[in-house]
């Protein structure tokens, strides 16, 4: 009755709402946790102590060098055709503007193709991207590459429509990348509303002028940590089922959903198993990654350090797409392993969450998956997730404790059973 016992404890028993309450305590105390910030390091130290206090084994911190970027003060003022202050969020790793800002005419485009067609018009201007939201994976390239593509055609700065599935005038930040040999220009996200408005104004042939000020600064890399805790395996302690989420966030809202929820249901999975006095045959290892938002920096360094033991990893799991009511598990692995995962998920029939989808993935576990280790991720309502993603709206209010209970139950059953099977998952 192991699966039933986990479900009962997580959803109906004394552990219900625990992951939500632990997370609320952390994010209400510390706030958002940007890579390189004191907030993140305080959160890591508090979580490390709480993991030790909760009786988990082999609790330790693994050092990582992480990027340190600060946004500083920032603003965008439309000065023509009317005075209008726009909400913006600078993008991670962006350079700042001169103190007086950059004042320039705007060129609005809907795609990179349109930018190429109108390249001659872009020189000396601020490029505004008004790309449609198709999916996160499709649309995010404008956020990541928008500055580079604009700089290639001589733009002074870029303003990018937020990559969001819905907007109530909310700018959404995120990471962006410069390219060697291409001039670095300041870049920020604007709201869906303002991107559409400027597109409409420009379509009438009206000139738009914007003053953009950004106080962003890139500092040298700083010290941080991946946070690790375990339930040591009883028969094959050297073999690992890795359960994870990331502890860092952007510097807006509370980072409660991305990825406080994922990190804390991962912790909850081990807590549930421990509370029930269970000890799987192989080790359940919780890893709370640092600096995921800057491109899986903590996970990359963990992989370099631990890949020598890759043959001992049965399954890597990451929750980084929300902890709303799960629709199932995304899984990447061989057909044989998938068949086993389908059997494991059938244990969750009491919650009516049994589906195994394709494309198990996560920024932090992809290193392992690409090297052949089976990987799983939690799937829920992604549309809702991207309402709040990287915005001031990412707070505890965006989470639901009851849905987190269910997500934690799924996470615990899957991780425990795979860790306790007589054999590792086949590759």
């Amino acid at each position: 009755d192991v699966a039933k016992a986990i479900i009962n404890l997580a959803v109906y028993g004394r552990a219900q709402n625990r992951s939500y309450e632990r997370l609320a305590h952390l994010v209400d105390t510390v706030g958002p946790r940007l890579s390189g910030s004191k907030n993140l390091e305080e959160a890591i130290q508090l979580t490390y102590q709480s993991l030790k206090d909760s009786g988990l084994e082999n609790v330790h911190l693994e050092p990582v060098k992480v990027p340190h970027w600060e946004r500083g003060e920032e603003s965008a003022m439309m000065v023509k055709p009317r005075l209008y202050k726009m909400a913006i969020l600078g993008l991670g790793s962006s350079i700042g503007t001169p103190a007086e800002g950059i004042t320039a005419e705007v060129l609005v485009v809907n795609s990179f193709d349109e930018l190429q067609r109108r390249a001659i018009e872009a020189k000396g201007k601020i490029v505004v991207y008004n790309q449609p939201y198709i999916s996160y994976a499709t649309s995010v390239k404008y956020r990541v590459q928008g500055a580079v593509e604009a700089a290639k055609v001589g733009a002074l700065a870029s303003l990018i429509r937020s990559v969001a599935s819905f907007s109530i005038y909310s700018p959404h930040t995120g990471n962006q990348k410069y390219q060697d040999g291409v001039t670095k220009i300041p870049t920020a996200c604007i709201t869906v509303e303002d991107a559409e408005m400027m597109s409409r104004i420009a379509s009438h042939g009206t000139t738009i002028v914007v003053n953009l000020k950004m106080g962003a600064v890139n500092y040298p890399d700083t010290d941080s940590f991946n946070t690790v805790a375990e339930i040591t395996g009883s028969r094959h302690p050297e073999q690992i089922v890795l359960v994870s989420g990331h502890l860092d966030s952007w510097d807006v809202g509370q980072g409660a959903m991305d990825d406080g929820g994922g990190a804390f249901i991962s912790w909850e999975a081990l807590s549930l198993i421990k509370d029930l006095g269970l000890r799987p045959k192989r080790t359940l290892r919780l890893v709370l990654w640092t600096a995921e938002e800057q491109g899986g920096v903590g996970a990359s360094q963990y992989y370099q350090l631990h890949k020598v033991n890759i043959s001992q990893y049965s399954l890597v799991m990451e929750s980084d797409a929300g902890t709303y009511l799960p629709t199932g598990l995304q899984f990447t692995g061989s057909d044989k392993a998938r068949s086993i995962m389908e059997e494991v998920m059938s244990l969750l029939r009491p919650l009516n969450i049994t589906q195994v989808f394709t494309k198990g993935e996560g920024e932090d576990i992809n290193f392992w998956i690409q090297a052949g280790v089976p990987g799983a991720s939690l799937l829920d309502d992604l549309n809702k997730y991207f309402f709040f993603h990287h915005s001031h709206g990412d707070t505890m209010t965006a989470l639901d404790p009851k849905q987190m209970n269910v997500a934690a139950a799924v996470w615990a059953v899957v991780s425990y059973v795979v860790a306790d099977l007589d054999e590792m998952l086949p590759r």
Partner: peptide, 24 residues
């Protein structure tokens, strides 16, 4: 090679299926 060494299944799928059913 290292990846596959530790993961050669000894059990049949039927046996694994029965094993997992034991956790219901």
């Amino acid at each position: 090679k290292a990846i596959h060494k530790a993961s050669t299944p000894q059990k049949t799928f039927k046996e694994i299926q029965e094993e997992i059913a034991g956790y219901t």
